[in-house]
């Protein structure tokens, strides 16, 4: 599903953000990408979304070679990847329903499809009753659930979550992790970027550990916790 072959990304400063990274994530996997800030996690997310181009190496997503996707084809490519951010990035002037519907409008989905899918997604994230609320009227956990609904409403094959629990307390963080696990069980490949060791340990999923731009560990928590 996601394959990186000897990928390096060098910014102008000269220090590589990613250095010869090779990763293979299968369809339906739940994977944590762990590392301290500045380790290259954000660069990896940007490369996967084709916001950046690798200096060296090749990235494949759903069998597509990213270097072969031209500018015009990027929107279609991105529709297959849902993204969730640490700071939720919801539109503050729109309510819960509109925020989720926005993702479908942007990809020019038919109105009747929007009316059908958005309530379903809001039920999935347990926010159907708050569909009229504005983001500022919701807790952090609820806002992140809206963001997850928005990321999933177009039925992507992959969900990328960049520090999804970074702004949440423990209770909310666990709720979000359980929701991501449920989404993964429904068949979506989930990649969570985090530095929260506690969550990674308890979830007991595959972890790819990045340090100074290099993959220094790949396996279950027990295998890499020594690093």
């Amino acid at each position: 599903m996601i394959k990186l072959e000897h990928v390096s990304k060098l910014y102008q400063e000269g220090v590589p953000a990613l250095d010869d990274v090779s990763i293979n994530i299968e369809k339906g996997e739940f994977v944590f990408i762990m590392g301290k800030s500045g380790s290259g996690k954000s660069t990896l997310i940007k490369l996967l979304l084709k916001e950046l181009t690798p200096t060296e190496g090749e990235i494949y997503i759903s069998g597509k070679k990213l270097s072969k996707i031209n500018h015009k084809a990027i929107p279609n490519f991105r529709r297959n990847i849902g993204v969730v951010f640490q700071n939720f990035r919801l539109l503050q002037d729109r309510n819960v329903y509109e925020n989720v519907a926005f993702a479908m409008k942007v990809v020019e989905a038919p109105t009747r499809e929007i009316k059908k899918r958005v309530p379903l997604m809001l039920s999935l994230v347990n926010l159907a009753a708050k569909y009229k609320s504005l983001p500022r009227q919701l807790s952090g956990g609820e806002q992140q659930r809206v963001a997850i609904a928005r990321a999933l409403v177009n039925e992507p094959e992959i969900l990328l979550a960049d520090e999804p629990t970074g702004n949440l307390d423990d209770t909310n963080a666990w709720e979000i992790m359980r929701l991501l696990e449920e989404i993964n069980e429904r068949g979506t490949t989930v990649v969570v970027v985090t530095h929260n060791a506690e969550i990674v340990r308890k979830m007991n999923k595959r972890v790819i550990y990045i340090k100074r731009g290099q993959v220094v560990g790949d396996g279950k928590w027990g295998d890499i916790s020594e690093i």
């Binding site: 991105r78 529709r79 993204v83 926005f102």
Partner: peptide
């Protein structure tokens, strides 16, 4: 700016 960034990440076409 933020809305445009989100639109692009979701997969909005340039024309949209």
């Amino acid at each position: 700016k933020e809305e445009i960034a989100i639109m692009k990440l979701i997969g909005a076409k340039d024309s949209f």
